[in-house]
Structures are given as structure tokens and as C-alpha cells.
Amino acid sequence: ELTQEQLSLLNYILDAYNKYRIPLDMTKSLLQEQFSADENFILLTEMATSHVQVLVEFTKRLPGFQSLDHEDQIALLKGSAVEAMFLRSAQIFTRKLPHGHNEVLEDRIRKSGISDEYITPMFNFYKSIGELQMTQEEHALLTAITILSPDRPFVKDVLSVERLQEPMLEVLHTFCKLHHPHDPQHFARLLGRLTELRTLNHHHAEMLMSWRMN
């Protein structure tokens, strides 16, 4: 079972995760079906910026984060932003959206100018997240764990980051055992997605380059 302390940590992270989302008016404009290539580019860029902003607000609420060295805070966010964004996007694509919304969203991404060799692994990742049928708690915790990865480039005080990440891994581990008693591998599967995210992150820089070229 989760201890009282672990339960509070989980609820606290879940609240922050639910609170900080991309503003609704922005997601609404994403669903308008008519758009030019330029409009699409601008909107996707604005979305990405907004996404980083809400991610930072979520991160600020992670217990202990603000006590870390300021440059380490930036190194953690810089190293993880792309992965956390892929995770949140995967959650959006996994949800049962109103009829047709998925198609409009996918259409926008496919017409963004990013080449297929980068788009395909991204949608494969979304699919692999969908197969796990993750709960909101798991999404919130996995995002926090991704952000608090001590092995990001330029992190100086690795030990302090480890101390923040570890209790979250323990909560996620126990949570998985409680909520997936028939799938003892669930926790391992979640951690496996983190490896996939690293690969996507690695290709992201190349993806941006190809986008700019187009």
C-alpha cells in the first residue's frame, strides 16, 4: 500500500498535472479544419511555446525542484522538455476525442512540413502509450520522473536530483502493483517508454532541422 506521505505526494503531483494544461482557446484553434501552411506553422510554434510554459509551471510545483541550483533547474527542463511534451501529446492522441478531432490533429502534424521519417516513429510512440492504458496518475508521475532525470547534460548536482526522483519512482512502482495486479510487468513497461522517449528526443534536433529546411 501507499503510505500517507506517498499518497499526499501523488495527489499533489496529480493536482499540478491537471491544473497546468495548454489553454483551451489554443487547442480549439487547432481543431479548425481550414488552414494554410503558414498558419499551421505559426499555430504549431505557438502551441509548442505554450506547452513549454505549462510544463515549467508543473515542474515548479514538483516537491524540492525550486530548491535545486537554478542552472540545474534549467538543465533538467532543457533536457526533458521535448520528452515531456511527447508524453502529453501521446496522452491527447490516446484519449477518445470527439468524432473527427483525431484526424484533424493528425492532418495538421502530417502537413507541418516535418518529414515522414520523423512523424512515423512519433505516431508509433503514441500508439505504444495507448496500449498501456495509463491512468492520469501514471501520466503525471511518469512526466515528473522524466523531468527529474539526473543524467541530463550539464546537471551539476546529480545526487540532489536523484533524491527528488527516487520517491516518485517508488510511488509509481507501488501504484502499478496496486492498479495492475494481473500485469506484474506494467511498471517495467512504463519505464521502457522512457527509453523510447530518449530516442525520440535524440531525433528531435534533426527533426527540427528538416522542418526549418522545408
Partner: peptide, 21 residues
């Protein structure tokens, strides 16, 4: 415009300010 800001700039600005304001 936001599109001219790099990831690190956005992170630094967001860390300094408060999104709620």
C-alpha cells in the same frame, strides 16, 4: 514573437515569471 525564442529562453522566462499572472 514567440517563434523567435529558443527553448532555453522560454524556460528561463517561465521560471522567472508566473504563468498564472
Amino acid at each position: 514573437p514567440a517563434s523567435n525564442l529558443g527553448l532555453e529562453d522560454i524556460i528561463r522566462k517561465a521560471l522567472m515569471g508566473n504563468f498564472d499572472d
